[in-house]
């Protein structure tokens, strides 16, 4: 008897992509906006410049991917933390919907916000 192949590769791809993109880029944001600018190592760009930057299609796409994929990374991790860490595997279906559903909701909200900047 052949068992059905799992769809986990899909969630795992989002998880992997989210892990990679956030590991590479979030430190850059922290360094720029969290350390370098407050300490005056580089000059702080004014609001208009940042707004213009954020409205550029490439930036929009970038922020969207960064936020959404990071959320899916969280969802996958948290799903397994609840399963194994808190031994809640019996609530499998609810956890699944809660985790990926939250990431999906976050993605939609991000999309709307970025669209309307």
């Amino acid at each position: 008897m052949q068992k059905k192949r799992s769809n986990d590769p899909f969630w795992w791809t989002l998880f992997g992509a989210g892990g990679t993109i956030s590991a590479f880029f979030i430190p850059v944001h922290v360094l720029l906006f969290g350390i370098a600018m407050p300490l005056g190592w580089i000059s702080v760009p004014d609001y208009e410049t940042l707004l213009q930057l954020a409205q550029h299609p490439v930036t929009r796409l970038y922020i969207f991917a960064l936020v959404s994929l990071s959320l899916f990374h969280w969802a996958h991790r948290f799903r397994y933390t609840l399963y194994d860490g808190l031994m809640l595997k019996h609530l499998e279906h609810y956890i699944f919907i809660f985790c990926y559903g939250s990431a999906l909701a976050g993605t939609v909200i991000t999309g709307v916000l970025i669209w309307t900047i």
Partner: peptide, 15 residues
């Protein structure tokens, strides 16, 4: 082998 390992009991159980 994928038929065995890409199912629910396979590699994606690994965390």
């Amino acid at each position: 082998r994928n038929d065995v390992l890409l199912t629910d009991d396979g590699i994606f159980e690994c965390t």
